[in-house]
């Protein structure tokens, strides 16, 4: 009121002063009871007025922040999911290099000739990395006559000797890998080879259209 009363002389000259006085006098919201019986009734409030009265720039800033944070979180979840997908495929799928390696290693361990040549507790490992881990087994997937093959190499070591294991797998019509051959070559001056499995004749003959397989001279 004081400011307006100070301003009054200037406002009076222009024609809007009475209007301002009027509005300022009745600016307080007043509630009147509409019914005599109940003493107090709720004041009628306008519900269609938004309570969110922040400036537009701040709203935009907030929304951008929320969107960017959500994006970061979603990207993190996505990356984690992709990594877990790779881990699970490697560890739990029966056609992953890791499972083929496990199965081939078991076959090598159970072969009496290999056990005899290397010495009883035989352990298997892959290529050594710079961090001195040997978990990575080297393998390559290749196509021959339109059929996926996988070749793999890993190492085994017993108490007396060590050897290199060569595995070649071929996908059958259901997409599962079948062993084509599996052999162990001793890693010493003899380079003696033990052929643990050789299904090449059977597997390559079944498809028919394969190239004439080379002569098998098993040593």
């Amino acid at each position: 009121m004081t400011i307006i009363s100070k301003l009054l002389p200037t406002l009076r000259t222009s024609g809007i002063a009475p209007a301002i006085i009027q509005t300022s006098k009745f600016s307080l919201p007043r509630s009147f009871s509409s019914q005599k019986e109940s003493g107090l009734t709720k004041s009628q409030e306008r519900t269609d007025v938004s309570k969110d009265v922040r400036p537009l720039g701040e709203k935009i800033k907030d929304t951008t922040k929320t969107v960017s944070y959500t994006g970061v979180i979603l990207a993190g979840i996505g990356v984690t999911g992709v990594i877990f997908y790779y881990v699970f495929r490697e560890l739990f799928s029966s056609n992953s290099p890791n499972s083929i390696y496990s199965a081939a290693l078991e076959k090598c361990k159970n072969d009496p000739r290999v056990e005899d040549a290397l010495g009883a507790p035989i352990k298997g490992y892959g290529e050594e990395t710079t961090r001195r881990r040997r978990t990575h087994v080297s393998h390559a997937i290749y196509l021959r006559d339109g059929i996926q093959h996988m070749r793999m190499r890993f190492y085994i070591k017993g108490i007396r000797n060590k050897g290199v294991v060569e595995v070649d797998m071929k996908q059958n019509e259901y997409g599962n890998y079948i062993c084509r051959y599996l052999l162990v070559q001793l890693d010493d001056y003899t380079g003696k080879t033990f052929i643990i499995e050789d299904n090449r004749a059977e597997l390559d003959a079944k498809t028919g259209a394969g190239s004439p397989f080379p002569t098998l001279t098993l040593t």
């Binding site: 990594i83 881990v87 290749y142 196509l143 051959y181 380079g191 052929i195 001279t217």
Partner: peptide, 29 residues
């Protein structure tokens, strides 16, 4: 961490896609 390692070996393997066809060892070993 293991998954990152596996993923990287997969991705680097994909890069060399036109791979040579391995010849079978005619005399195994």
């Amino acid at each position: 961490i293991e998954g990152i390692g596996i993923m990287f070996t997969r991705l680097t393997a994909e890069q060399f896609k036109p791979q040579p066809i391995f010849e079978d060892p005619s005399v195994l070993g």
